[in-house]
Structures are given as structure tokens and as C-alpha cells.
Design a protein around this nucleic acid. Sequence first.
DNA 1: TGTGATTTGATCGTGTGCGATTTAATCAAG
DNA 2: CTTGATTAAATCGCACACGATCAAATCACA
Lengths: 140, 140
Amino acid sequence: MIPSEMICFSLYSANHAMQRVYQPVLAPLGLTYPQFLVLMLLWDKDGQTVGDLGRALQLESNTLTPLLKRMEALGLVSRLRVAEDERQVRVSLADTGEGLRGKADGITRCIFEACGVAEQELTALRDQVIGLRDRLRSDG
Amino acid sequence: MIPSEMICFSLYSANHAMQRVYQPVLAPLGLTYPQFLVLMLLWDKDGQTVGDLGRALQLESNTLTPLLKRMEALGLVSRLRVAEDERQVRVSLADTGEGLRGKADGITRCIFEACGVAEQELTALRDQVIGLRDRLRSDG
DNA sequence: TGTGATTTGATCGTGTGCGATTTAATCAAG
DNA sequence: CTTGATTAAATCGCACACGATCAAATCACA
């Protein structure tokens, strides 16, 4: 059995292919793919904590903290301890991050076209992939 | 919400979930997930060049060279310049890598069970994901 | 109230992953 | 033959990703 036959490798390579499609779109904005994911979450709901973002992206603070610090240095977000619970850090959109909000639609449309699939078919595939992901998570 | 916006994330998170399933299986063998992928390719066909492996995994030499050097240091593979074309490097299974060959079936079966899906359904999903991946590649 | 357990981020080291560049070998046109 | 283009790896720098661990804040409960 060779890797290309396996579901794991199909996800591995499809994820890579997706990131290669995003790269030329995000690079002019000075964003990486994980940074864009964080912005998407904040555009939807600003002021989430590091833990909130981690639960959404399935990433821990050891990945998020340096990532968010880089985004802070770029003026994309700001980081502030929560007054009621000083353990938590609230992440909010800063000027540059807020300014990019208008670009999001164009980017997602661009990616959708690169998929070359009808919207309905893409939605069905997404749900199947998410279903598999959740079964994998529950077994862990 | 546009699906293309989410299909990317479903692949991203499903790939993460898959690697988390592999990790406890591979760690006792001292392997990482990409290292396991390389071994799978070599178990199928030994003596491939760096370029061959790169085309199969969609990775460049800047990723593969350090990875293969680590695998060489672990006794998993050996690296040798090709005599007929000194630009190429042939990667072959070494003792430790050959010795792990017998474990492959158990690992893939273990992953399959973690998916919690009938084989037929998993195969269909795999083909859809690969189809999407190839359309993404062709547009790039 | 006080003390141990828990929660939340941060830090550290290692292993990918990739854009850009470099080096060495081979090829191709004259 | 030679010289410029091409190809295959290697190198470098940077950004994730994660296991292990730490520090500080908060909680739980006697």
C-alpha cells in the first residue's frame, strides 16, 4: 500500500495544495495562512481569548503565542490581559487587521474558483471531511 | 458563509486530526509522520532519488534534504550520489528502516479503525479529496 | 482562611515546510 | 571543445506545530 492510496496522504497533500493556492493571494497582504485563519475568526467575533482561538483552530498556546506576537508586531492585532481573569489574554483587531477585513470576500471567492467545483459539491465534501475529522478527534 | 472559505479549514483541521492519530502510533517507533511517508514510498520502491520522493510528496529538496539527513542519522535510510548523474542522490532503506517494514500493515489498519468509517466510504472520500487536490494543483 | 489542584499562557527545543539563493553536474548550441 | 542554460540538491532564514515544562492566577474544599 503506497501513501497516495491512503486517506491520510490525500488530506496531507490536499491541505498542502490548498495552502499553495492561498500563498500568492495572501503574500501581497503580508499574511501567512494561519494568520489569515486567525483574522477570519476575529472578523467574525472580535476580542476572543488565546484559548478561544486555540479551540477553534485546534492549536495550543505554544503555537499561538508566537504567532499572535508576530501579528501584533505587524499591527494586525493587539493583545491584552483580561481584567476579570488575569490568566487570559484577549486578542483584538488592530488597525491593519481591521483594514484587511474588506479583502476577505475577494480572497474566499478566489479560492472557491480555484477549487473548480460547484458550490453544492464543495459543501458536501467539506461536511464529509469535517465528519471524518470529528470521528478522529473523538477517538483520541 | 462561502464553502470555499470552509473547505480550506476542513482540510487543515482534518489533516491535523489525522497527524494526532498517527503520533502515538509512530512515536514508539521513533518516527515522525513525514518520515513514515518517506518509508512507505521506499518500502514500495527502494532506491528512489530525492526528486522522486519530492514529486510523490510534493516537497522540495529544501524540506527533504534535512529530513533525509535526520533519517540517515537514525539508521533508517542511506543516501548516495547516483554514479551516472552525480547531481542526483539515491535514497535507500537501511537496516532500521527495513526492519520497520513489518509494522506498516498494523499501523495502517490502526489508522483505518480510528477513522470509524466503512472502507468503501473512506475510499470514496479519499478519491474526492484527491480530485479536489488535483484541480487545485492544475490551477496553480 | 489557607493550601493544593486546576487553568491559562508563555517558554524552550526539535522537526517540518517553503521562498530565495547557491553549488555542482549535465545538456545544448555553435 | 566551450560557453551559457538547465537541472538536482543543498543551504539559509523564517514561520508554523507540538511535546514538555514553567509561572501566575484562580478555584475548590476542608
